[in-house]
């Protein structure tokens, strides 16, 4: 992809959607590559280790609308949004649509070919305050959001999910994960907000790292946060500990089969950024919660197994008893 990079006076913003690939089994790397051919003629990149991972080429979407603002300012932005879809472990689909906001040199709208010459960049035609734009996009609940990056990401996601190569069957029902992020220049920053509807907002700045590196980090955080949320949702439905074992198993079985082994924090981020992942993890306790949930699933399965074995033994003894 033509990666969004921050330079002097630039701000990268994006939205990420995370969900299961609509397919009853894990898709192979070859299948993932075929599903992710969003720009026919361009190639899909993929890696087999540390786990299967495929990245689509980056289709562009043209926009000419207001850019975000926490204070409700209206500044016109013109340019293109770039999207990428990834499939991790043959199971998890993520789409990120993003754009780098820069100040326009011209101050008026140029011929469209100018913007296609700078893919993934949106030029702001008025006086834009990039801090205000970052806050409006990735911190404030109100304010002007402007570019509908979430809609663009969802359109790309629907396009991937509509691939004739997928059978349309979800392995598990889980809500889509939704993240909005802003990568800024300047002093180190990591500000995380959770909205009432569950949307995660993150503003960050890491000197020496552009949006392309940090996108990998945010995408990985979004993936693991979504895995955690999915396991919690399913365990809630399963009525762990109170429901009959067969109901528990009906819910928990797919979790073991499809979800648990995808936990692999920081598997594809730059080594220098791993400490940042760890720091976020320490504060938000992703791994601690995950370990506790996984232990609970395993303990419950063990208990249910023991109970079922005991039940079976009792029925056998009862059947074989004196009559």
């Amino acid at each position: 992809m033509s990666s969004p990079t921050t330079s002097e006076g630039a701000l990268a913003i994006g939205e990420i959607r995370t969900g299961f690939v609509r397919h009853s089994t894990e898709v192979s790397l070859e299948e993932a590559s075929a599903v992710l051919r969003l720009v026919p003629g361009e190639q899909v990149r993929h890696a087999g280790r540390p786990r299967a991972y495929a990245v689509s080429p980056a289709p562009l979407t043209g926009v000419d609308c207001a850019v975000p603002s926490a204070r409700g300012r209206r500044v016109q932005g013109v340019g293109t949004v770039t999207s990428r879809a990834t499939i991790t472990g043959g199971r998890v689909l993520q789409v990120c649509s993003s754009a780098t906001l820069v100040r326009s040199r011209a101050g008026y709208r140029l011929p469209w070919s100018h913007y296609l010459g700078r893919p993934g960049v949106v030029e702001c035609l008025g006086r834009v305050d990039l801090r205000d734009a970052a806050a409006g996009f990735a911190e404030a609940e109100g304010g002007t959001r402007g570019i509908a990056l979430g809609s663009i990401a969802e359109q790309v996601m629907d396009r991937v999910q509509g691939s004739p190569l997928l059978d349309g069957r979800l392995p598990l029902r889980a809500p889509r994960g939704s993240w909005r992020w802003a990568v800024e220049d300047g002093e180190p920053l990591f500000r995380f907000t959770v909205l009432r509807d569950g949307t995660r907002l993150v503003r960050l700045a890491v000197p020496g790292h552009g949006a392309a590196d940090l996108l990998d980090l945010v995408e990985d955080l979004a993936l693991h946060d979504w895995l955690l949320g999915t396991v919690e949702t399913i365990l809630g439905r399963a009525g762990l500990g109170s429901a009959p074992p067969d109901r528990t198993l009906r819910h928990v079985g797919p979790l073991v089969g499809h979800v648990l082994h995808h936990w692999m924090p920081a598997a594809r981020i730059r080594p220098e950024l791993v400490p940042l992942w760890d720091a976020v993890d320490r504060v938000h306790g992703l791994t601690r919660q995950w370990d506790a949930l996984v232990a609970r699933v395993r303990d419950q399965l063990a208990l249910d197994t023991v109970a079922m074995l005991a039940g079976a033994a009792a029925r056998r003894d009862g059947a074989a008893g004196p009559g």
Binding site: C65, G146, A148
Partner: peptide, 22 residues
């Protein structure tokens, strides 16, 4: 021609925010 058609990113009229696909 098909390859070029896939590479077309239409010129957006003012007010295009990406809510609707072109």
């Amino acid at each position: 021609a098909e390859l070029v058609l896939e590479r077309v990113t239409p010129d957006p009229p003012p007010g295009t925010d990406g809510t609707r696909p072109p």
